[in-house]
Design a protein around this nucleic acid. Sequence first.
DNA 1: CGCATTTGACCGGCGC
DNA 2: GCGCCGGTCAAATGCG
Length: 427
Amino acid sequence: MDLNLQITSSGSDSYADGEIKDEQTNNERAILCTELNRVSAENHQLRDLLSQLNRNCNVLQMQVVSLMQQQEHSQRAQIAPKNEIINGRGEERNNVNDIVERQFMDMGQNGKQVKTDFDTRMIGNTTLYLPHRDTNESWDMKRLGKEKSQVPSQTHLLDSSTTPKLNGITSDIDQATEAAIRRARVSVKARSEASMISDGCQWRKYGQKMAKGNPCPRAYYRCTMSASCPVRKQVQRCAEDRSVLVTTYEGHHNHPLPQAAVAMASTTTSAATMLLSGSMPSSDPNYFLAGAAINSSGTSPISVASISATAPFPTITLDLTRVPAPGAQVPVPALPSNTLPQRAAPAESTFSGVQRSHELRLGQQSRDQAQKLPSLPEASRATTTNFAADSNFTAAIVAALGSFMAMGSGHQSYNDTQIGNPKFSGK
DNA sequence: CGCATTTGACCGGCGC
DNA sequence: GCGCCGGTCAAATGCG
């Protein structure tokens, strides 16, 4: 206002007009810059908030899983507490959990230091160790179970796989172990007509080979969410059953992951860690880790996860084709729908994994036969109980299964190359 | 035109 | 040393 008065009182009108316009332009520019800065700052804050919410969501998901496992265990312990005491399984489990907890402790310089990295929360009798809110924790989630003195403690260590460092914890793992973990592999077998299962990550195909003993070509992908991400995966159709897609993951991500990808990444890392924990019997070439869910007839166990020592690299296989799980009924917190990848899904290229497996069975069998399948709660209870022997890995597997089911509603694979499809010519 | 995929070449490990 | 095999590279090709 003052400026206008001064200018209008000057002698040169044309000069004054030009100056006024310049001043107005400068003012508008300054205002716009200020506004832009404000919006940028607000945007930054919102992103931080969103990131924090995602982390909290992951933490809560894993806590729910863990609590449900504990609940299941409590119920079973009430049903047959004597059996465990008589056959000594209770003691054995405690030993296992001691090992798990020791593994966790070993990852830090000492347990005390590790624990001080977390806030603690009490839910019932369970102590939860959460990452500090005010730090950019590379841990998506850590959880320690009940105190040792109580019935089977469960320790869930979820390597974030989303960041290069684990804030003073990974730094204590010697490099050889880290290298070994990188070489450890996790295979996922799932029924899918799509060329690739949706795991929430973005992949770029960098090669394809015909592998010996399988007429279907093997495709090689690398993660493209970060330029330096070391994660690779191989996708190949099963020779025996070409409706089954075998996806093998290697390495862990060194960048933040979308929530939809967290479960799989966690599974990979947890499996790798577990594989190297020495918990598997050396005498067994193929050791069925867990998931020996007994079906309703009580005859044939359904293997869900197995460890292979015969493969060139330590490999754990999750066989989702055998999980008799209809859709969303698994007692696993399905990921919220808003965590689904944004890419629109075409009609047919959706991964349905477990769900499709079940649908196929229903399509091939009569209703009566289908009803003979183990009911889900029954099967999952057995699975959960057996998994509890290695709870570190349990939560990750369960989370991965839940994630798959949540994604079953439709997500396009990153590319639509048909692996093993007749129209696809191998090398 | 830029980017993703394809595919032949290349490399290293392993067994003989 | 040689061949086989799995894995990766990179130029060519295709596609939107």
